[in-house]
Design a binder for these strands. Structure first.
Lengths: 226, 226
DNA sequence: CATGGCCAAATCGTATACGATGAGATATCT
DNA sequence: AGATATCTCATCGTATACGATTTGGCCATG
């Protein structure tokens, strides 16, 4: 579906400018987005900025209240859980739809990326891990013919990127499990397993990360999630 | 999540006005939405109309191209399939999440609605069938604690309402099966079946409608879908 | 008669301007 | 002093205006 906003419009400029700052944590949750201020900074008027903010709102990155203003969405632990659950469902489904259509070459690439993931672990490079992790999953559901679903997956990802920089940096040991699960999923697909099984495996993979996070949170008291 | 647009804003007025006309088929797919014209009709300016149209675009009810204009989204058979698949996934998931939380009273209400569905069948009242069908499913996933997912379900429904008035009017016999499947799902939940099984049953319920549609289309040649 | 370029109308995209609304500070009363 | 009313300011929501872009028809030309 991919919303059709022209690449060279001011509203698109504002959208990308804001989105970039939000997902890269330069604008943290709660940061107030004042239309006139942003417009001034970008040298445009407030109207396209407003439109950009509305789009970000629809994606859940921003909240916008009447006559009050917009701010980067505040997220609590509950939001993180909700987002991960949703992502588990849609990413799982996307992977299931994609699985029977993946070529051997796709699977080889997925395997290669997973090996690089293993490397990034040994060199303890969280940023790289996050990047490669997304690349891995993007390959797995890359052949999903249902664009609505892949859109939902991408949306979930960007929301997740806003929530926290990388998943595994918070939960020691989870990343190692993750790489092993990746391998398992690739094997399932290579063996021609029933797509529904592949879907559920992909879903469990993400649910496991969520559970690990919750256990970690619980064991270590505090409620930091944003 | 439920987007926070104030109830008494002009943009909200335009949004509801347009949305109502689209889902009720007064504005059919392909109908051109000219900003100035709509603004004039509503006695407001074009700016809030534009915002309303952008929202409808994000929901997939409208397409909007730069310097060309907006129109009610054109939908082909492929779009219908995609929408139904997506809905099968998210509605199934919502039902699965909701199932363990449903009270006996909820189930009794669901059962009652399903009986009324049976009635509407006997009196051949498609509109009523569609309404009750939504009510039935709304009860089933009503306890789903994940609002992101229920939002996705509602979005899918509105898109579906735009696509065609009711499903069963197109596929003779499908409605009867549908009512039987409803009963089956309620039983599964009442028996405390594993939520994943409930989810898959709910998903199959929708997939079956899609398959019936596709068979019907195939058997009767033509490609009417929009 | 077919084709290609040009012009005008329609429509969008954005800027600017201003009224409306809510939050916070200040003054006033008890 | 504490609470309440009021005032002011920041910010949004929308109207109006205008430049930018596309479309479709018209005319010139081969």
């Amino acid at each position: 579906m991919t919303t059709e906003v022209p690449a060279n419009s001011k509203s698109q400029l504002a959208y990308e400018w804001l989105r970039d700052r939000i997902v890269s944590h330069r604008f943290t949750p709660g940061y107030r987005l004042v239309l006139s201020q942003i417009a001034g900074e970008l040298g445009i008027s407030t109207v396209p900025v407003r439109e950009a903010i509305r789009r970000l709102e629809a994606e859940g990155l921003v909240t916008f209240e009447k006559n009050i203003g917009a701010q980067v969405a505040l997220v609590d632990e509950g939001e993180y859980v909700t987002t991960m659950q949703t992502l588990a469902v849609v990413e799982g489904a996307a992977t299931g739809f994609s699985a029977p259509l993946l070529t051997e070459e796709d699977l080889a690439r997925a395997h290669a990326v997973n090996e690089r993931l293993r490397d990034s672990l040994e060199h303890f490079d969280p940023r790289r891990f996050t990047e490669l992790n997304e690349e891995f999953h993007a390959i797995l559901f890359g052949r999903c013919p249902n664009e609505h679903i892949t859109d939902l997956v991408r949306r979930g990802w960007s929301r997740l990127r806003m929530l926290r920089d990388s998943t595994f940096s918070f939960v020691p040991g989870r990343a190692v499990e993750s790489v092993a699960e990746h391998e398992h999923i690739v094997e399932l697909i290579a063996e021609g397993t029933d797509p529904i099984e592949v879907e559920l495996a992909a879903r469990r993979h993400r649910t496991a990360t969520l559970d690990a996070f919750l256990r970690f949170q619980h064991d270590h008291g505090s409620g930091r999630a944003g």
